[in-house]
Design a binder for these strands. Structure first.
Lengths: 135, 135
DNA sequence: TTAATAATAGTAATTGTTACTGGTATTAAG
DNA sequence: CTTAATACCAGTAACAATTACTATTATTAA
């Protein structure tokens, strides 16, 4: 890839991810973009999503099961994944640098970064569950 | 599944994972077991690995890219993933409970667990790299 | 010993993703 | 405003990891 050319599809994909705060999958992006570009290809969506990740304009979230998700928030933050509905929420944490330092003390390679992911039940599912119990 | 029946294949898979400390993939387990059971099926390996995970006898490690890995160490600990050779090493960290408490303060769902993964260059790759530079 | 059924081997199907191909859109130069 | 170069596209095929299906086999309890 010598120089990069503009493409309306890419711009649309970027805009969609940046305006979508539910950490969409490639398929969700595909569905969304199709409203504007009815015959966009799924391959184009995948290609541009990973391109945008390389450019640092969005980030990719890998999950334990199910497809990758994408995040418009490129500032350092953590994720919460609901084990019931699989929704992903952002969690801001104050300075987690020291975790790497702590880990470095028990390890003999070079630690460059770290990712912490939280699991549990989101607010919405908690509410749904309490309704069920009452019934 | 009413009651569980014994199977030599499952026992062999459990033993293999418990004696293998390099966090094997399903394929690596398959290759290993095949020495004892030359015509075991890959499906049997997958089925029993997830069964053993459910039983809490081993754990599963999802990676950003590439297949899942399996870990005989069921005690709470973190993982380091080398971004160069993809090897996975265990890292013991003193009490990380407070990370969840800290996250809980900025979040309105129920946090049940968390996983921290470290990325960087392992000792072996560091050494290999320094050899290359000298040459 | 036998009957019930969990587990198997082998194979097919599914899912998520990447690669290929011939044609199209964008860009820069004449 | 052409035209030429090429990044990008749509569509489709290929791929890797995993799961589901089916007929047979092994384990268990009666």
């Amino acid at each position: 890839m010598a120089t990069m050319k503009y493409s309306r599809q890419r711009e649309s994909i970027r805009d969609f991810v940046h305006s979508c705060h539910e950490h969409p999958t490639a398929d969700m992006v595909y569905a969304g973009i199709r409203e504007e570009f009815p015959n966009i290809s799924l391959g184009t969506v995948y290609r541009n999503l990973s391109l945008l990740v390389e450019l640092g304009e969005i980030t990719k979230i890998s999950t334990d099961s199910g497809p990758d998700r994408f995040d418009c928030n490129t500032k350092p933050h953590s994720h919460f994944i609901c084990t019931q509905c699989q929704c992903i929420r952002d969690i801001e944490l104050p300075d987690t640098e020291y975790i790497e330092k702590m880990a470095a003390e028990n390890f003999d390679g070079e630690i460059i970064s770290h990712v912490t992911t939280f699991y549990g039940i989101c607010k919405d599912c908690l509410r749904k569950n309490s309704f069920k119990k009452e019934a």
